[in-house]
Amino acid sequence: MVRVAFTENLQRHVSCAAKEVDADTVCGALDAIFFHCERARGYVLDEHGALRKHMVIFINGNPIEDRVTLSDAVAASDEIFVMQALSGG
């Protein structure tokens, strides 16, 4: 299972608790989360499914490479962390 957690700053707008999901890509992991919390999707991704300009996603502490289709691979026991970049806003 992959653990997905979100920045505290997001919780002020939409509740999105950390969760363990079955997925092999970042996109798959977020889809599994947003299936239960659809409103959060628009806070993290734009209308085309790309990561918002001033958001960043880490896998085990390393930023993802594919910000457009979120195809970076994940494996069991990986940790995904979604946060706002320290830019923009």
């Binding site: 700053n9 707008h13 628009g42 209308e47 085309h48 918002r52 001033h54 706002q84 970049a85």
Partner: peptide, 29 residues
């Protein structure tokens, strides 16, 4: 405009006492 979290819209039907988030327009891919 939340900046990091994008553009949002909310609607109130009770003179601003409470708010419900609407969807926002989406550009075609």
């Amino acid at each position: 405009d939340h900046g990091h979290f994008g553009v949002k819209m909310h609607r109130s039907t009770d003179a601003g006492v409470s708010w419900t988030e609407c969807t926002v327009p989406q550009y075609p891919k």
